[in-house]
Design a protein around this nucleic acid. Structure first.
Lengths: 236, 236
DNA sequence: GAGTGGTCTAGACCACCCT
DNA sequence: GGGTGGTCTAGACCACTCA
């Protein structure tokens, strides 16, 4: 992963480091307009291309802001972002060294309920496949999945078999998508949910809610209730 | 933001589109080894540099995997990642169009408790500043903050005044950092927490836990309890 | 050993946007 | 209008890794 500079050439990683150090040391305090790329390139004896790449990454990292004529400005509050891999339950469980298990709880076809249509812009009477299933880690309930799939967008879903593996895996394998919206929140488990997760009613559950889109049309909406105690890690 | 290609030149954005389309249409199914950069460049009549940039971004997006001698491979399950901006409570509240309010609840200096030392690698007797405060939106409790700051790492913290604005803002303004670890989970509110958040004991609260590091040394550890019902959005 | 991606140079034209 | 960043070309050398 780490690539060493060949000789004593200045690379874009080194440029990034130098600029970051100057920002952190307040040599370039917040709101400072940095020297132009050409000037920096001259100072560091490299080409503008190299400086450009470094600065573009700093902009992507939320450290600086760039505008054509205005130049590159140090952001007052680094708008740090964190990334996390979108939870894929089998991978999560096996990655933790546990055995993955799966059970289909229910399957039916129905019209989209009003709340779903309202939130996603679906036509109110859209035919949806509604599935609920349970994912297990080492035999213990881990995550409860409640999923809606638009039959019009994914006709083949009606013929798929979800008795032995979940719809998430099938969808990610078979259906293209262009955008994902994710939200996370906490909710108290209902009696029915708690029973399935082997927890107590009212226990706090970490919930992920995901909408998947293909060119502006909803493909699937899923609510994932994790067993109490689950943590999601991210790094910035 | 959107930059148009100047004439009918092929740009890296266009290359990305073309490759993505071929992957989505199964012209290049999962596990396919793509043609080398030089070949693609020839086919699309552009330089290898342009293809390289496109492929690097696809790799960063989790669409393909690249290895030097092995070439570029289409990932079976796109390892999509989502990003979110690290919560900054004042920005969150004001961004939602509400008035931001703040109250300091407690302030004391103490040795690091055992659980904290164990989790962060701090020396067990480190002197820490321990603060709790409340952030309000339109006058209503929004988030309860419980923060520990290493006095050795940030001596100036003892002289800072947190009566009218929170330690988060002070730290982000005054103290450099290199890494952040974030975790999210759900927890039931204790009676004391619930009273401060104007909620009921046992209500499910969304919790963010953040550790901030400077070159391997802990700067601050903070636990943020959001009022029940709070949602965190992200986009992939 | 040899092929593939990683990165840099040197130079150019252009789009955007502030003044 | 003019300066700054955005992007492309053409060519080169090298590092990594697989066979």
């Amino acid at each position: 992963m780490a690539v060493l500079p060949k000789r004593d050439q200045i690379g874009y990683r080194k440029v990034k480091e130098i600029v970051m150090a100057r920002i952190r040391s307040r040599h370039w305090p917040p709101d400072t307009i940095l020297p132009g790329e050409a000037d920096l390139a001259a100072e560091l004896s490299c080409t503008r291309t190299t400086v450009n790449r470094a600065m573009q990454e700093l902009a992507e990292d939320g450290i600086v802001e760039r505008k054509r004529k205005a130049g590159t400005r140090v952001l007052p509050t680094p708008v740090r972002q964190a990334r996390f891999t979108i939870p894929q339950v089998r991978t999560d469980i096996e990655g933790a060294g546990a055995d993955y298990g799966y059970r289909l709880l229910s399957r039916d076809v129905a019209a989209a309920p009003g709340w779903l249509a309202a939130r996603t812009g679906l036509a109110a009477r859209s035919r949806m496949l509604h599935l609920t299933c349970l994912h297990l880690a080492d035999g213990a309930p881990f995550q409860l999945e409640d999923r809606w799939v638009d039959v019009a967008a994914v006709p083949a879903i009606l013929d798929a078999d979800f008795d032995t593996s979940g719809p998430g895996e099938w969808l990610v394998r078979e259906v293209p998508y262009t955008d994902i919206d994710v939200a996370f929140f906490a909710a108290s488990l209902s009696a029915a949910q708690a029973a399935r997760l082997g927890a107590a009613p009212g226990d706090a559950s970490f919930v992920a809610e995901r909408m998947t889109w293909l060119e502006g049309d909803l493909v699937t909406f899923v609510t994932l209730n994790f067993r109490p105690g689950h943590r999601m890690q991210a790094t910035g």
